[in-house]
Structures are given as C-alpha cells and as structure tokens.
Amino acid sequence: MFLSLAVFVQIIVAVLLIIGLMVANAVAMVYMERKVAGFIQRRPGPYEVGPRGTLQAVCDSMKLLAKQIYRPGNADLILYYLAPILAFFPVLLLFLPIPFGPYLTPLPVNDGVVLILAFAGLGVLSNLLAGWGSSNKYSLLGAARAVAQTVAYEIPMILALLAVVLLSGSMDLKSITEQQGQWPWEWNVVLQPLAFFIYLISLVAETNRAPFDLPEAESELTAGFHTEYSGMGFALFFLSEYANMLLVSFVAAVFFLGGYRGPIADGFWWLFIKAYLLMFFMVWIRWTFPRVRFDQLLNLNWRWLLPLGLLNLWLTAIVTKLLV
C-alpha cells in the first residue's frame, strides 16, 4: 500500500536530492541573475571572486549562513519564526510529482496538478505571516499586496493549466508529458498558445518577480514582507523564492513544452534545459521592464487574463468534446 518501505525510502532520497537541487539552483540563479543584469545594464556584474566571478554567489551564501539573526522587539514570535519555515517546507513537497524522466518521478501521483496547486497556496500564507509577524508597516503593506496579487493571479494560472488538463484528459503530469511528441511542433504549446501566454504572465506574478514584484518593491517598501528578516530567516525565503521559480518553470515545461521529451533522446536533460530557458526568460524581463503600478497589475489580471482564460477553457472544452 502507500506506506510501504520502498516508497518511504524513495521519498526520503527524493527530498534530499530536491534540497540539493534547491540550494544549487539558488546559487546558480544568483550568479546568472547578476551576470544577465550586468549585461543588460552595460556593466560587468560580479567578476572579482573566482574565474569570471563564479564564486561570488558561494561567498554570499557563506556570509548569509554566518549572519546574526536580528528580530524586531515587538514581533509576534510564533508567527515570525513560523513564516520562513512555512515558506521552505511545502516547496520540497511540490517537486515530488514532477516527472523528471521516463522512469524518474519522485512520487507518482494521480492528481499531480492539484497537489502542486494545493501546496503552493501555503507559500502565500507564509508571506502573510511574515508580514504580519514582523509588526512593521512596510512588511504589512508587502503582505497585503502579496495576498491581492497571488489570489488574483492564481485564477488565470489554474484556468490555463485546466485547458491542458481538458486536452489530455488527465491530471497526472507523467501522462500529460507522454501525450506530447518529441518534436517542438508536437508539444501542447502549439495547441494551446493562449494558455501558454496566460501561464507565462501569471507565473511571473505568482513568483513575485519584476515587473510584478510589488510585495517586495524595494524602492517603496524597503524589502516588503521580509524587511525584518536577516541571516537564515531571509535565506529560507530566498531559497524558496528561487525554488518556486524553478517549480513553475518545470510545470510550464511539462504542460506546454513536452516535459522530458525532446529530439534525439528523452531524458531529464530536456526538462532542465527547457526549465532554465524559462528561468532565463524571467530574468530577462525582470531587467527589461519597469515595475507596474498596483492598479495596472490587478486590471491586467481581472480585465484581460481572467476573461481570456475563461474563453480559452470554454473553446478547449467545446473543441475536445466535438473531436473526441
């Protein structure tokens, strides 16, 4: 049954590997982000430590580990310390149903999509508790923005994913991958370009990245909901933010870009290549577009993405019903 020893060991090994992946991903992404930002803004980026500055991120993480944790005197202690933990641990769970390769799924789940969406909801809760627990007006404002934004953009995101679920008749990520072919024109992005577009916009908003990074807009709110966090408290938020980026990229790759399938040979390398191309895309638009205003952000969602998502879902339902 579902509690057999083999499955248990499999989950433990998978979680350990995922923690490794999260840390490696954060270090690599910090380097990539700073280098790409430097390139876009015509400056060198980090170049002192190691060859071409590759060790800069490692040094930064060492500094972060050794830093003292300050906490505000009138903080709500339980909520203040609970929030980073709550940000970090659900993310571990989110990677479990992702099919990394034809025989490489950490935990095959029938309702993989629902699992990811369900536990992703805990992430916004942690932002809220962080903002509230620090008892700081900037944190609180950041948390309020995080709620409005995440709740709003979750809807078009789910609608976009639902269109693909309707198309393939399954909520299992592996069978969604298997139904797409090896070549790019056999992927779901060809059949669902609008859903892919909606998903791309809402994944940037869901991960609180610029141009939608209003919950932590540093020019207005210092650092938003994690203003009062230092040392490992901040590091956990940081790790989970980059892990969330990786996760939404994985989900986009699985749903729209054929997952681990690709020309010549299927395997986890294709999934990683696609996911990191999407991550590069997110970094690229972060340093290209200015931050939007809050009303623009919400108008874009409620007036455009939501109706478009509903329309797309409706059309997909009709077409699949007529053709099948």
Binding site: V109, N110, D111, V114, L115, L117, A118, F119, A120, G121, L122, V124, L125, L128, W132, L140, A143, A144, V147, A148, T150, V151, E154
Partner: peptide, 26 residues
C-alpha cells in the same frame, strides 16, 4: 480520497484563509 484532501488544501487554505487574512488586514 486524496483528491478531496488536496481540494480542501487548495480551496480552504489557499483561498478562504488567505481572504480572511486579507479582511483582517483591511
């Protein structure tokens, strides 16, 4: 019924609680 369990998380924690929190903050 894992589907119902996940829906419970998605709807009640991901949406209802977060909206209640929003109301509290307002």
């Amino acid at each position: 019924s894992p589907f119902l369990a996940l829906m419970q998380l998605l709807i009640y924690i991901g949406a209802v609680c977060v909206l209640i929190f929003f109301a509290i903050m307002l």
